[in-house]
């Protein structure tokens, strides 16, 4: 069965959404038997990352860049783990290959385009579901995280996180796409994610590092997203609602730029591979 048709007719938005849901379900079914264990291990992963900071900083009144340490790390982890989904580009291709449907998907320009659009929608949907769940867990662990913010702030920061997912999706495409052509093994997207974990202000602000080490943060471009996300989460929206729009605007510009570059590079790469007949030789 084809996941995506070879020739893409002009379809309505509704039909596109339905087709995306079918595609998403088909890919999810592949891992359906692991789904419960996957969710449990993901929950444990998040807890094991967050709990140590909660325990060590509890009652010490230490602050990072004006934020409570637990709040700082919780928001950092929410950001890191939710954008992680957006880097699944190579993973999705691998699943298609294992299903034997990679050739069908990338055998036409329309198929490639639709695959990229559906993958983007998939990343955004997964990120938002994840944010809702993880924010609830963090709130249960320490209620002050939720009580010190407002509904508008949560909404604004969720929009920024959505835009961050879009930006990271573009980054993932940029990083992974060249490796499809070179037929070399590489994990540039993973390395970028780990670099963000270390120097991306996830666990601590860069100002707490020595100046030389802190300069590495310059090479982690998505650092802007996390700064906007944190600011929006704890902003006093009664007095500075214009600032929320500013933060969303900045994130939106960055996200769209990254997405455009990523989309172009992936699309061109897959097109080139298709023309050269090298689509079956991908290594993941």
């Amino acid at each position: 069965m084809e996941i995506l048709p070879e020739k893409v007719p002009k379809v309505s938005l509704l039909r596109g959404v339905v087709e995306w849901l079918v595609w998403r379900r088909k890919l999810s079914l592949y891992y359906q038997k692991y789904i419960i264990h996957h969710n449990i291990t993901f929950f444990l992963l998040f807890l094991s990352n967050l709990l140590p900071f909660y325990v060590w900083s509890k009652g010490t009144e230490v602050r990072y860049a004006g934020y409570d340490v637990f709040h700082y790390v919780a928001l950092g982890l929410i950001y890191l783990l939710s954008v992680d989904y957006s880097l699944e580009f190579a993973g999705r291709l691998r699943r298609l290959k294992e299903e034997g449907e990679l050739e069908i998907v990338i055998s036409s320009r329309g198929g490639v385009l639709r695959f990229l659009i559906y993958s983007l929608a998939d990343s955004c949907a997964q990120s938002m579901i994840f944010v809702l769940i993880v924010l609830t867990i963090s709130g249960l662990l320490d209620r002050s995280l939720i009580s010190s913010t407002t509904f508008t702030s949560i909404l604004a920061s969720s929009i920024i996180l959505l835009l961050a997912s879009v930006g990271w999706f573009g980054l993932g495409l940029m990083m992974d796409a060249p490796f499809l052509i070179w037929e070399q093994k590489g994990r540039p997207a993973t390395i970028l994610l780990l670099l963000t974990g270390v120097f991306g202000e996830i666990y601590f602000p860069l100002e707490n590092l020595s100046s030389r080490l802190g300069e590495i943060g310059v090479f982690v471009p998505p650092i802007l997203f996390i700064r906007c996300f944190r600011q929006a989460f704890f902003i006093d929206n009664a007095r500075s609602s214009y600032r929320i729009f500013l933060l969303i605007g900045i994130s939106g510009c960055l996200a769209l730029s990254l997405l455009m570059i990523g989309f172009l590079s992936a699309f061109k790469t897959l097109e080139l591979a298709r023309k050269q007949g090298r689509t079956g030789r991908y290594t993941f």
């Binding site: 900071f53 060590w56 010490t60 790390v73 670099l195 707490n208």
Partner: peptide, 30 residues
């Protein structure tokens, strides 16, 4: 051996990602 450079880079980054945050936290704590 075939994947050593990537594997070692990823492993080292993972270790730093775990150690550095606690080192920074240790510095600012009492």
């Amino acid at each position: 051996l075939g994947r050593s450079i990537i594997t070692v880079t990823v492993a080292l980054l993972r270790i730093i990602m775990r150690l550095l945050p606690f080192s920074v936290l240790g510095q600012v704590l009492a």
